[in-house]
Amino acid sequence: MAGSFKSRARHFIYLPYLIFLSVFLVWPGIYVFRAAFEKNSAERHPMVEAVTGQYRASFIYSLELSAVSAAIGLFIGSLVAIAIVRLENVRVLRSLVVGYSSVAANMGGIPLAFAFLSAFGMQGLATRLLREINIDLIGWGFRITDFWGIVLVYLYFQIPLMTLILVPAIDGLRRTWHEVAQSLGATANQYWRFVALPILTPALLGGFLLLIANAFAAYATAFALSSGGSRLVPVQIRFFLQGETITGKTNLGYAMAAWMVLLTLVLVIGFQTLVRRSERWRQ
């Protein structure tokens, strides 16, 4: 690195980007933690209160919802990914499924809630069709606004996201491994169970973590479905920090946000580590 003015000056070109990130990402992030760790008059520290009692229940509810939707999304999304590889000779299938998956994985928010209300709501089309074949969802106590209802809605973006994560990993499985396994007398199922699955495990686990983080941050869909979603952590944070209202518990809201960042951080680091591991096989 030459010390001339010109060579140092060229680093200024990076300044706008770095300043932008500091001001609009790092500073708000720091603000959340500073406000969360500020000791207020309450006897308990906000960071502690945010994970006790009803707020702990809120975190557990959010995490359960995320984990359950991630687990089911992992299972079904993987099946879809394997299916399009197994049915490889049907050309359009792959581009169709991958194409729609990238659309659906980006779906969320208000329109998705509308779609599920009109399908699986009390007066939904799917609810009605299922009743015709004697599957009475409402009679069984299913409500689209309850825990399992929200899980169903989340699956709409969790399944395709998992498919998108897994397809490149499956592509990375080398044909020769399959041939070797076959020539050693392994059946197709044995190959998947003892060769493919262990190699895919990091990608699967990483995908699982990403799916949890994905659902954990989701807010709009649950908000639009309202009632059942009101216990989710983001909705609670909104309650304390919406607009200019002083609830007297703003620190608690920031503390919950800080916990969300910490949990997401753990999930994302786990994801990155596992993805790096799974990429080792792909060269």
């Binding site: 990076y14 980007y17 770095l18 990130l21 609009f24 990402l25 500073w27 708000p28 992030g29 720091i30 603000y31 959340v32 406000a35 983080a213 954990f216 941050a217 807010y219 983001p234 944070i237 909104r238 920090l241 809201g253 920031y254 946000a257 800080a258 969300m260 960042v261 997401t264 951080l265 994302v268």
Partner: peptide
Amino acid sequence: VIEISAVLPFVVPAIALVVGFAGA
């Protein structure tokens, strides 16, 4: 550096980002 900083937003969920932004 840019590559790493560009995935940082993944770590800060929108709800945390916006309350930090409003406060700051």
